[in-house]
Design a protein around this nucleic acid. Structure first.
Lengths: 221, 221
DNA sequence: ACCTGAACACCGTTCAAGT
DNA sequence: ACCTGAACACCGTTCAAGT
């Protein structure tokens, strides 16, 4: 019954196994031992290919953007920039805990580099100065990652135990409405606005503000 | 020698102990056992006051914004909004791993609520519609958290082992410059812009874009 | 009501040893 | 060169038992 040894364990294979474990167990449940098992190998074997867990997570982060589909190169820079943001968000939402993996992780993996290269190319072609193009790219990733991080996280540790986002939002709204109106009049008044569960609209709002801000930059050149 | 038992363990005391451990060991080193030891108690005792580690981190997240100083209520809404962003960033940078703690954590702790209440009050006074005020507040926190998360994280797992940000940035620039110019011409050309270690300027750039975007919103009412 | 001791089922990482 | 077995020093969490 001796299973034939993997013998072909590679960094790509490790990343693929990590993706499977991430989807099944979430980031909190992703251990070196489970990734190793998924790859058909002992935990200690991973350390031949990878310095530590942090480096494995770098691999995973790059693998997460491997199947990114770039927006069509049609229309103005603005529409392309918006589409970039929307697709990046969709990509992160599509995989469990993806934002948590990617958020504070500045990798120079091949897939990340390819996307960045393409995005910079479009921004420069649109007329942005070099430094502004670099900033615009950085800005978009910070916004999308920050947004999805909030979006993917449970509304509170208390609600983590089951409850749809709609229910959780209503519960959060109740918290606001229950506050004393003398001390927190604005929270009481805006309870509905603050807990609007339509995340697409919220995301789009911020994205449009970013694009507006960048557009102003382009006009004054 | 029997140390007098804590007897006065409270949620506030736990949060204070957690702050100390966070500063000393970082988020990765913050364990229930160490927080308990810092509070002069056994690990199991914490579970009387807190459901699990996640709830303890919620407490910690709220405690982190406890000593936030709100910007002066002078000048236009724009300057106040900018100052809000700058001070929030400074607050997160002042404490070790603060952005990681706070990032995907939607708490309704008292300190968080107080800040949000104040911010909404200013935005509404400036003439923003209710929904827009709620969005503007959400947008700022997503941006600042996303930005500082990148800023506080090591530039790459490889460089994590010592090396100033300036050095790390130069190393990252070398990575870009070393890419083949045929496949990654923009990364090669913008290597300096992409790795500019002046994070204050980068942050300010994004912040100004956000304010510009919101200003456009205000004009069209 | 609040805290402890002891246990359970895990972790990441190292390192000699195997092939 | 690559993988394993076994160990080390930890984890979060539970639960009977103490006061």
């Amino acid at each position: 019954m001796a299973q034939t040894p993997a013998r072909t364990l590679t960094r790509e294979g490790i990343a693929a196994a990590a993706l499977v474990v991430l989807e099944r167990e979430g980031l909190a449940g992703l251990s070196m031992r489970k990734v190793a098992a998924e790859a058909g190998v002992q935990a200690a074997s991973l350390y031949w290919h990878v310095r530590n867990k942090e480096e494995l997570l770098d691999l995973l982060g790059d693998a997460l953007v491997a199947d990114a589909e770039l927006p069509p190169r049609t229309g103005g820079w603005r529409e392309q920039y918006l589409e970039y943001g929307r697709r990046y968000r969709a990509l992160l939402l599509a995989r469990r805990d993806a934002a948590k993996v990617v958020a504070g992780r500045l990798t120079t993996g091949p897939h990340v580099l390819a996307v960045l290269e393409d995005q910079l190319d479009r921004l420069r072609a649109a007329g942005f100065a070099d430094a502004d193009a670099a900033m615009a790219a950085y800005l978009l990733s910070a916004y999308v990652q920050g947004f999805v991080l909030q979006e993917q996280s449970p509304l509170s540790a208390a609600e983590a135990a089951g409850a749809s986002r709609g229910q959780a939002a209503r519960a959060a709204g109740d918290v606001f409405r229950a506050l004393p109106a003398e001390t927190h009049p604005n929270l009481v008044a805006l309870a509905d606005d603050l807990t609007d569960p339509d995340m697409d609209s919220r995301f789009e709002f911020g994205l449009q503000r970013l694009a507006d801000g960048l557009a102003a930059l382009l006009r004054q050149r």
